[in-house]
Amino acid sequence: MTANTAIRNAFERARHEHRAALIPYITAGYPSLDHLEPLVQALEAGGADLIEIGVPFSDPLADGPILQQAATEALAAGVKVQQILDRVAALRVSVPLVFLTYVNPIYRRGIERFIEDSHRSGIQGLIVPDWPWVEMREAAKVSKRHRVAMIPFVAPTSTDAHLHNIRSAEGFVYTVSVTGVTGARTHLDQGVGGLVARIREQVKIPIAVGFGISTPEQARETGKVADGVIVGSALVKVIRDHPDNPIEAAQAFVGSFRNALETK
C-alpha cells in the first residue's frame, strides 16, 4: 500500500504539463472559519495543485509578521482544532490538502490521534516547522499506517547527513529558500538552484520551494528548478488587504501565479 498517492499524482499532473506544481497556503480561521470553504474552492479554481491549510498556533516561531497576525486573529476569534478538522472533512475539493501547524497542538491532542483525525478529514500530509526529522521517528510509523505524509524540511544550512536521512520520506520535500522565517521578500537567495540540485542527488520525491516567494516572476524563476512552488505570506497578505472581496482577490492572485508557471 503506497502512501499519499494523491500528493504524488498532483506533482505528476503538473510535470506532464511541463510546469511546477502550485501550492498556496492559507490560515484556517482567517479572516474567519466560514471563509475556509470558499477560499479553498477559489484556490482550486485559480489553479492550485495542492493546498496547505494552516492550523493556527499561539507561538509560531517560524513565521513572519503576516502569518503571525493571521494566527493571532484566528485564535482570538476562538478557532479550535476540532472545528478545523470538521470544516476540512466537509470540503468538496479535488486537489490534495495538507496541514501546516506546530508540534505542540499535535503533541497535545496525542500524536496518533492527531494524525488519525487528520486522515479522517481527508488530509494527505503534515508540515510541522518545529518538528525536525530526527525527533519524528515515532510519528513516522503512525503516519505511514494512516497514509499521511510527514513532509521533511531542507534548509540552506542542511547537512548531507540530513539529506541522507530523509530519503525514506514521502510526499514532497519542503525546501526553505532562505535562512529565516516566512514572509515576502524582494530578493531570493541565489543558491536555491544549487540547493535543489543537492537534494535531488539524494531524494526521489518531488521538491517544492517556499519562504519568501511573493511575485509571479519569482514563482516562474523558482519553478524552473523546483517541482513545486509554495506561496503563503504573500497570499495571506492579499486576503488581509481585500477585506471586502478576499475570495475573488485570492483566486485572481493564485491565477496570476499559475499563469506565470505556465509561461516558459
Binding site: L61, D130, W131, W133, P152, F153, A155, S158, V176
Partner: peptide, 13 residues
C-alpha cells in the same frame, strides 16, 4: 529534545 526548525539543527550540532 530539539524541537526547532531544520535551519537551526546544524547550528545546534
Amino acid at each position: 529534545g530539539q524541537y526547532v526548525p531544520e535551519t537551526l539543527m546544524p547550528a545546534l550540532d
